[in-house]
Design a protein around this nucleic acid. Structure first.
Length: 448
RNA sequence: GAGGGAGUAGCUCAGUUGGUUAGAGCGCCGGAUUGUGGUUCCGGAAGUCGGGGGUUCGAGUCCCCUUUCCCUCCCCA
């Protein structure tokens, strides 16, 4: 467009106009309502965290996307004067990358001030220096919910139900929740004969299976230093059907080690416990689901719909994260819905109800009506209507004032003229029907 | 990080083999005998043709660089 581009927000960041805000609020309201119905309570945390809080939690890919905040004034000058400046010397703070790590810091730091079983939700922006795309931004809102302080299956399932409940209430019916377990993955990787130091790499490669295909994963594994034989063995294992029928979940014809068996049992328990409720018909075990974030230790989930490349949300159990901040280790499980992912799909599918930005009534006046009287009329109408707007230029022709009301999407206009005032009435016109009637009104009382 | 497409008025776009003051529709502002919208008619404002450089008598149009946006991948929310 215009050369400077200076009126546009930064790439990957957006201005929200009133119509945008209404849609965002519509979704946020439902998220809050559903989350609170499960007993989750809201918290908020600062945009900026210490780098020591953020680093080492997200894996290499994640850390590369971290926005770092430069030192200021003397501290910056001193750093720049040194001969060998490193990234560490220039910054010790960064914008939060997700809401889970700040939560872990809060739980570790406010021990005693929060309940033993802390159920919190948090709807705030996070920042990632990612390349923007469809449904993908550099500043975006996450709707997180977490339960800390317990490692039970019940907690896992409540989190899944609450997130699913939101999706259903918003009108989604076709979402799939893929379910897997980190320990099970580790077990499969061990069984395939892949060295433990390559585990993380192997997980990332395996996660891409449904996108780049089997050969793609084999190539990827090869590039990461996994031998062709073990790579195809892993693929073979991951391709095994998980049998979730009846009492036991089994992987066809495979013996698992102890932790793998336990993980499989956990999956079975989750499926069983979640067999009724919002998540029930949407869960499916997927041995190729890995998830990029480094802190997961147990069950992992990801929710998606067919018409969006990325996921609507994801989560899992992270029993080790809170302990990193000191003190005893605290088990935790959580889920995060991406607000703009929901919005993008809902927009495409036309899932929003009528959301009008217009006022209930616009007060129009003639030039000879004193300003104080116009203000008084608007004031008294606010007893009856939620949103009353006063046309700010009463000198304009009445036709233009009404046209403006129409453009705003106002339901009614109230016309204030001296003739009517002297008769103790107001003209009220319904803009959808064109019907006009009179209301009695006196300056000291109210309209009726 | 890989590949593809596009930048001309607020929006959607047209602009022929380079040729005088760059167009349309919608929107916006105003008017059609002085107090009533969504229709119609008339008038008006608005573009350094994304930015820079080059070729040419002459560039929106050709060449180079740059930048921004969009779509697939990758990754994630």
């Amino acid at each position: 467009m215009k050369g400077s581009g200076s009126t546009k927000p930064l790439s990957g960041m957006r201005d929200f106009l009133p119509a945008d805000i209404l849609r965002r609020r519509h979704v946020i309201r439902i998220v809050e309502q559903v989350y609170e119905s499960y007993g989750f309570l809201p918290i908020e945390t600062p945009a900026i965290e210490n780098l020591s809080t953020l680093l080492g939690k997200y894996g290499d890919e994640g850390e590369g996307l971290l926005y770092r905040v430069l030192h200021r004034r003397d501290k910056l000058s001193r750093a720049l004067e040194s001969d060998s400046v490193t990234q560490k010397d220039l910054s010790s703070e960064g914008l939060r990358y997700d809401l889970t790590v700040p939560l872990a810091r809060v739980v570790a730091g406010h021990r005693g001030r929060i309940p033993r079983f802390f159920k919190r939700y948090q709807i705030q922006p996070v920042w990632r220096a990612d390349r923007p795309g469809k449904g993908r931004f550099r500043e975006f809102f996450q709707c997180d919910l977490d339960i800390t302080g317990t490692g039970t299956v019940l907690a896992d399932v409540e989190v899944l139900h609450a997130a699913s409940g939101v999706l259903q209430k918003l009108g989604f019916t076709d979402f799939r929740i893929r379910l897997n377990h980190r320990e099970l993955l580790t077990s499969l990787i061990r069984r395939a004969g892949i060295p433990l130091e390559l585990e993380q790499s192997a997980l990332v490669a395996l996660d891409k299976l449904d996108k780049i295909g089997e050969q793609g994963v084999l190539d990827e594994l090869g590039k990461r230093g996994v031998s062709a034989e073990t790579a195809s063995r892993l693929l073979d294992l991951a391709g095994k059907k998980v049998n979730a029928q009846g009492a036991g979940v089994q992987i066809d014809g495979e013996e698992l080690d102890e932790s793998g068996t336990a993980a499989l049992e956990r999956i079975r328990e989750i499926l069983e416990a979640a067999s009724t409720g919002p998540a029930a018909d949407h869960l499916e075990v997927d041995l190729t689901l890995a998830r990029g974030l480094g802190y997961y230790t147990g069950a992992i989930f990801e929710v998606a719909v067919p018409d969006l490349a990325g996921s609507l949300g994801g989560g899992g159990r992270y029993d080790g994260l809170i302990g990193i901040f000191g003190g005893e280790s605290v088990p935790a499980v959580g889920f995060s819905l991406g607000l703009e992912r929901l919005l993008v799909v809902m927009e495409e599918r036309g899932m929003f109800p009528e959301l009008s930005t217009g006022p209930d009534v616009l007060v129009c006046g003639f030039p000879d009506v004193p300003h104080s009287l116009l203000l008084k009329v608007a004031m008294s109408l606010r007893q009856e209507y939620a949103r009353v707007e006063l046309f700010p230029e009463p000198g304009k022709k009445l036709g233009q004032q009404i046209r403006y009301a129409d453009e705003l999407g106002a339901r009614e206009v109230v016309i204030v003229g001296m003739d009517e005032i002297s008769r103790g009435v107001l003209q009220v016109k319904d803009l959808s029907t064109g019907e006009q009637r009179e209301w009695t009104w006196d300056p000291d009382g109210s309209a009726s």
